[in-house]
Design a protein around this nucleic acid. Structure first.
Lengths: 209, 209
DNA sequence: TAGACAAGGTTAGGAATCCTTACCCAGCAT
DNA sequence: ATGCTGGGTAAGGATTCCTAACCTTGTCTA
């Protein structure tokens, strides 16, 4: 799937058309007629390449996911330490939402309400992506950088939830997303929590940086 | 809106019918014909009481929200300390998702993809609900229980995101939700963060419990 | 080199779905 | 008795998603 090469022109035009339309409209408000017209093909062609309208959405998402998954992987190369990796992953993650609003909208809003999405190939890609974070957490626990009294899978959910929810409102209302600023705040939150630390200047110095 | 009293029987039957159908199906897969049939009324009656199919969804959600918002408020009475209040709020919040899966599905999955939802009266109720958490955070900052170097609005988003994302997968896949267990883990995460604390047995005893 | 056969695309249409317009009827106030 | 309001129905139309069948062009092969 999404072989990156050799898609017929019609298929490409259709996928691009959907991306264009999603910039301005909800997925549910976009009709197949509209997609076909924007793509410059007939409606029936959509159904040659996609099972149905949703499948088109899933496949468009999948193409983006593959790309960003690959990028996340390379972005992490050369970084030492679980917390540093998490910081970088958060930054990259937010940066994608900041620069590709259509992708953000599809992933955070459009597909989530369809229950067949969770059995799709595309959802497997999402899981593959979040696997990266899980591995970093496990590494961090092993190296004593991350606490070991909360299950890694749980931590992953909580971390991703906070990232996504912070970006979500900004995506919905078209507000600006600043990766630097948000990453800084998110890391503070995720790493240290909201509790006011004891104001004990002698013993609470951070050890790692 | 949602005057709690004096709704005509037809309206009640329609709202109930939607709730029943949502237990088994996506909102997008439910037809107006189906709703009418389940309710034992004609399709046209839906449009007497609701602007359109979505408006029906929003209003059903609104009714639940009002109820849970009220309950959250009373649940917090008599609790001292911002962190204790947050713990209780998290528990109540999760408990709602645990006991009312339809409500959870509507709020976390169904309405989010519709952009007109964010201009609806129902969304205002959601904001009113999240306002509770914001006020607690502000109180906590004032009382030095909560760190003051991250904006309260940001903290609220991050906290709610982690709560909701933790519940989300369980809602999607129909897995069990254990309020006690999840609250404990979430509070640990939210209050203290993921970073392994310095293993300094003399000074790191928790103070509050 | 005819012809089989994919691959890419179109024509035409049908079932379902959402929603509207016009109508009915009971109760009740004047 | 009459007008009017609130709750409900009947009937239909436009739109939307999707399918079946067909066309066309290039390529492989006997």
């Amino acid at each position: 799937m999404a072989e990156a090469k050799a898609w017929p022109p019609g298929r490409i035009k259709i996928a691009d058309a959907l991306r264009v339309l999603l910039e301005k409209k909800d997925f549910s408000a976009i009709t197949t007629a509209e997609i076909a017209k924007t793509a410059g093909v007939t409606e029936a062609l959509i159904y040659k390449y996609f099972k149905d309208k949703r499948d088109l959405l899933y496949q468009v998402l999948a193409e983006n996911l593959e790309h960003y998954h690959f990028r996340a992987h390379t972005d992490l190369k050369g970084i030492k330490g679980a917390l540093n990796k998490i910081r970088k992953l958060i930054w990259s993650h937010i940066n994608v939402y900041a620069t590709d609003r259509v992708f953000a909208k599809i992933l955070l809003l459009d597909v989530r309400s369809f229950s067949d999405y969770y059995t799709s190939e595309t959802y497997k890609l999402v899981k593959k992506y979040t696997e990266i974070l899980l591995e970093i957490i496990q590494e961090g626990i092993k190296d004593q950088e991350i606490r070991d009294d909360i299950p890694p899978v749980f931590l992953r959910q909580a971390i991703l939830g906070s990232i996504e929810n912070v970006c979500l409102t900004r995506v919905i209302f078209g507000r600006e997303i600043s990766p630097d600023d948000l990453t800084e705040k998110l890391c503070e939150f995720v790493f240290k929590g909201i509790e006011q630390r004891a104001v004990n200047h002698s013993t609470t110095q951070p050890l790692n940086y």
